[in-house]
């Protein structure tokens, strides 16, 4: 671990702590939803970070196909993995919020469904990376990464139209509808904190991916020398 990484970790920890204070104590209690609304301070930042990471995955995949650098492939892998992990949080905290507010765990609402489909797409990306072997993995994965990202707007359009034909649950209060200024402050602090955490994870995973590749090559070289 480098000094820079340690310093970055320390700042992230402080930010997370401050975000915690913001979310649990400083932000006012929502009038109709009560404390349940505070889940929002984790839910929304995680969603934004996840979407951003999927975008990074797309950029890195395209970059890999153009330039074929190991770094681009490692970044694509790291962004997809951390993105799926954040997206998982979004998909679990969402229902936990929905249960007391809507009275149901899950509904096939436009945003929920598109997030679920997005999660499925990037899980399939990781599955492909897991099952593919040899030096062709980066190309295959990059192709799938581009397919996945191109699919996102189509998924969004399809599901929005799909939902307009079906009954929607009554959204009491509605997230984002009457969001107070102080609530936005709490959202932004937590967004900053969790974005930093994501950078830490991606950074570590990126370096590990490169180290794994270097190790593989060193093994092959060592075997060549032994013969």
């Amino acid at each position: 671990m480098t000094k820079l990484y340690k310093a970055f970790s320390a700042v992230t920890a402080l930010l997370l702590l401050y975000g915690f204070c913001q979310a649990w104590y400083i932000a006012p209690t929502e009038a109709t939803m009560g404390n349940v609304q505070r889940i929002f301070y984790y839910h929304l930042p995680s969603a934004w970070v996840a979407f951003l990471l999927f975008f990074v995955n797309f950029l890195a995949s395209a970059w890999y196909l153009i330039r074929r650098t190991d770094g681009a492939d490692a970044l694509a892998l790291a962004a997809a993995e951390v993105g799926v992990s954040f997206c998982t949080i979004v998909l679990i905290t969402g229902p936990i919020w929905a249960r007391p507010i809507w009275g149901i765990w899950w509904t096939w609402d436009a945003r929920l469904t598109s997030t679920l489909v997005l999660w499925l797409i990037y899980v399939s990306y990781l599955v492909l990376r897991h099952y593919a072997t040899g030096g062709q993995v980066p190309v295959l994965a990059a192709a799938l990464g581009i397919f996945g990202f191109v699919d996102v707007p189509i998924v969004y359009m399809a599901i929005r139209w799909f939902r307009t034909q079906h009954p929607q649950p009554v959204i009491g209060g509605g997230q984002g509808s009457g969001l107070d200024h102080t609530m936005w402050v709490a959202v932004l602090w937590n967004l900053a904190a969790f974005a930093m955490l994501a950078v830490l994870f991606v950074w570590a995973r990126y370096r590990q991916a490169l180290a794994e590749r270097a190790l593989e090559e060193a093994y092959i070289q060592a075997e060549g020398e032994a013969q």
């Binding site: 499925l120 492909l128 295959l140 399809a158």
Partner: peptide, 26 residues
């Protein structure tokens, strides 16, 4: 894509279905 992977018969639906969801819905 999946022909280059281990257990390729299982791999194809795993990567094809998620991407095809909007087309299937349509």
């Amino acid at each position: 894509l999946s022909i280059r992977t281990r257990s390729r018969e299982i791999m194809l639906p795993l990567i094809l279905f998620p991407i095809s969801i909007p087309a299937l819905l349509a």
